[in-house]
Write a protein that binds this DNA or RNA. Structure first.
Lengths: 137, 137
DNA sequence: TCTGCGGATGAAAAAGCTTCTCATTATTAT
DNA sequence: ATAATAATGAGAAGCTTTTTCATCCGCAGA
């Protein structure tokens, strides 16, 4: 039940928040732009403003429910903050997104941050390339 | 001499392009937003439009003279593509940027891209943290 | 169940970065 | 030097995201 997740996060249980969380959880793909979520809401017949979508996603991010990624072109995408950390590889032709985790890289990152005197708060690795499907074209 | 670099890149030698390349090469910090470059041009008395700055930086990127990074907040920064590839670690408090290269990570990235069927075109690793200077505060 | 307060929402405007348009100007090859 | 072609500047436009403000709703208490 979504309402308990919201309450746990210290957020009032409102229709927009429930519906948005619903879409994030139900949708087949994990990555959503604010626009994606907005369109999905329209399809289910909900009249929720784009400003509210942004507000809610930002609140979800602050509450740790969601992670925000800054992809090329100034677009942000959001994904549920469930499961483990992972990095992303994007196809520059079709926009496909794959995820991966690599312990070797994770460990090295920790070392590097320490070497440079940083206390690491976050990190993200984006790889851009041409996916298998697009290579032939 | 900048003009030869421009010619080599297949770009006409124009005043805006020379001046912008000049700023990128002379400036003490390696990372510049388009706005930074624009302001620096104004300070040297050059009347070059912001639109031209964006155009030229984009052309420089296409020509491989410059690399473009997408930092958080939808801002792009440009840096001369001289020397070797490197990744970035940013202080979330003071905005300081440090660079590093790690061969272990570089190698693993190649492997991962191949495993997932991608032909990698680019990659960037951003680490966010609190730098040594800001830790005390 | 009813009531009231504070937070949440919607619509539209605004903000910030980046790109486009188009008339004018400058560069390069001849 | 000249003509063809590309580059520039100024402003408008495009996009994503944030802000404003009047209205509305969830929730705690009566």
């Amino acid at each position: 039940m979504e309402s308990s997740e919201l309450r746990k996060a210290g957020l009032k249980v409102t229709l927009p928040r429930v519906k948005i969380l619903d879409i994030l959880e139900q949708s087949s793909n994990r990555h959503h732009s604010a626009e994606d979520v907005y369109k999905a809401l329209l399809e289910t017949g909900e009249e929720i403003g784009l400003a509210t979508v942004y507000r809610v996603l930002t609140q979800f991010e602050a509450a740790g429910l969601v992670k925000r990624h800054h992809f090329e072109g100034g677009h942000s995408v959001f994904e549920l903050n469930q499961g483990t950390h992972h990095d992303h590889i994007l196809c520059v032709k079709c926009g496909r997104v794959d995820e991966f985790v690599d312990e070797t890289i994770e460990a090295r990152q920790q070392d590097i941050a320490a070497e440079l005197g940083y206390e690491m708060t976050d990190h993200c690795l984006y790889m851009y390339g041409i996916c298998a499907d697009c290579k032939g074209k």
